[in-house]
Structure formats: C-alpha cells, structure tokens
C-alpha cells in the first residue's frame, strides 16, 4: 500500500488537491470504510485527502426551515444531539442503530452517504426526510436531492473532485410522528437486512401526509409516492396499512445476499412496514 497522505487545513486547499489528482485521489473522513478497502487492496488511490483538519465541517445547525448537518459530524454526535432528538427523532434513532459505539464515534455522516453501501441505516431515514446534499468543487457548488445522489451499489452522483460540504434536512410538518425500524438477520451489531423509515402527519385520526422509505433491501433505498398517497386523507385502518405494506413488498425488486434471500427480504419489508405504520397510528413518536 503506497499513497501520499494530504492533510489540507482549509476547504479550498482540499478542493484544489482533489481537482489536481482527480480519479487518483480519495477523500478520507472517519476512515471506517475506506481503511478496510485499502487494507483489502480493493482500491489503490495514489493520494488520500484527509478532511479532518478542515475547520467547521462538523456542525448541527438548527434553522427555521430545517437543520444543516456538517459532513464531518459523527453518527454518535447525531444520535446524541438534543436538536436532532427533539425535531428529527427518526434520524437520531437511525444514527444510533449503526454498528456499534466504536464505529459511531468514528464514522461521519459524509462518509456514510459517500460510501453508498446499500446495507446502511442513515440514508433510509434521510430519504424519508427529504434530504438535500450539497457538493462542492473548485467548479462551484450544487445541491442534490438524496434520491438523485444515491445511484447504485457504492455509487453516488459525486464527481471525483467534489466534496460533500453540507447535508440539509427540511423540517417535517408540526406534530408529525416518525419511526425507524431496523431489521437485523444476524448479530446485534450487524448492518440491516432491511429497514423502514416512516413519517406521518395526522389531523385527528386522518392521515394528512405519509412518507415511507425502505432501505437495505435493494440497491438504493426507495420511496414509493404512489403507495404513500393511498394514505392521504384516510384513517390508517389495519386494512389500509396492509395494502400499503403490500405495495412496498410487491414493488421493490429485492436483492439477495448473506443477510437474506430476495423472497425473505420481501416478507421482511411487508412485516416492518406494517409495524412502522401501526406504531405511527397508535401514537408513539
């Protein structure tokens, strides 16, 4: 393993290094994913650009329309943030479900999103929340909705010279109920076999808005707006919940890996969408 380690202490410095080395360079944040890939020699960059010394990339900033989370924020800080626990409990939950505490202390949000491993927790919660990712390069800055950012297995919309510089999560309707369910098929510290993030707003018993994202069961986490819309203006009866769960189970092309077969994942989607929606209807937050 031989590469040059660059540790720029400013954002422009890091962007310049990435622009210079292009495809030959890799960003290093918490290192939990990339160090494994280097050790296994799956990637062989000639330059590693560490972003750890750039100031002000780790933050959780609350604004009237939502929160901004810096890419270097660790999953542990997100899990423990009072702002996130209060306004986005779903995200605190999903961050807190990742691996084990040693991983969460080290793993960053930017690294989790850029790694784009299908068997991940935060992206599914963030998709349900309508997250926007900001990518910056010397060429400028652009904001990408998360559904367009995540393209496929280990593949994102990022160009080699771009850094994730901000993650924006819009506020949900006041009084929204949310939940995150992670299903593990192996050990208690494992990545998910399937996971469900759900957000619902109610007026009395009537559901006025529903958002459901299912992750880890297919190449990228998915929302199905046509199925979500079945709930709009309706009471979440057992029958309707069953119909929505079937909509997700039937329309997601599930994958097969060591955590479960495609058929098994379809069943897990059905069961966990039912559980998530029952939880929202019954009022737990």
């Amino acid at each position: 393993m031989s590469f040059e380690l660059l540790q720029p202490d400013s954002l422009p410095g890091a962007l310049k290094a990435l622009a210079q080395h292009g495809d030959e360079a890799k960003v290093l944040a918490g290192g939990t994913a990339i160090v494994l890939m280097l050790q296994q020699k799956l990637i062989a960059p000639t330059v590693l650009v560490s972003v750890g010394r750039i100031p002000d990339l780790a933050y959780i900033r609350s604004e009237p329309d939502g929160i901004h989370v810096g890419p270097l924020t660790t999953l542990r800080d997100m899990e423990r943030s009072l702002v996130i626990q209060t306004h986005f409990p779903l995200l605190a939950q999903a961050s807190g479900e990742v691996g084990n505490i040693r991983v969460r202390n080290q793993a960053t949000l930017g690294g989790n999103l850029a790694e784009a491993d299908y068997a991940s927790d935060p992206p599914t919660a963030l998709l349900a929340l309508g997250t926007q990712v900001t990518a910056t390069s010397l060429r400028g800055e652009r904001t990408i909705p998360l559904e367009d950012f995540l393209i496929g297995f280990y593949t994102t919309d990022l160009e080699p010279d771009e850094l994730i510089t901000d993650v924006f999560i819009p506020a949900s309707a006041p009084g929204s109920r949310t939940t995150y369910l992670k299903y593990r098929s192996r050990s208690s510290e494992d990545r998910p076999c399937a996971c469900v993030a759900a957000i619902a707003a109610f007026e009395a018993e009537t559901c006025t808005d529903l958002r459901v994202a299912v992750g880890a069961a297919s190449e990228v986490p998915q929302r199905l707006p046509a199925v979500e819309n079945l709930a709009r203006g309706q009471a979440l009866t057992d029958e309707l919940i069953g119909e929505i769960a079937a909509g997700y189970a039937d329309n997601i092309d599930t994958l097969e890996d060591i955590r479960g077969s495609a058929w098994y994942r379809t069943q897990m989607i059905r069961i966990h969408v039912v559980r998530a929606l029952e939880e929202l209807r019954n009022g737990r937050r």
Binding site: Q40, K41, L42, Y118, G152, F153, E219, L255, E256, D257, I258
Partner: peptide, 14 residues
Amino acid sequence: GRLAQFGQAVAQST
C-alpha cells in the same frame, strides 16, 4: 479472493 465478498447482490445487478 478479495472480490468474493461483494457476493450475489452486486454480481446479479452488475
């Protein structure tokens, strides 16, 4: 070898 860990899911989709 090293690529084996990617397994079924990635191979099938590729």
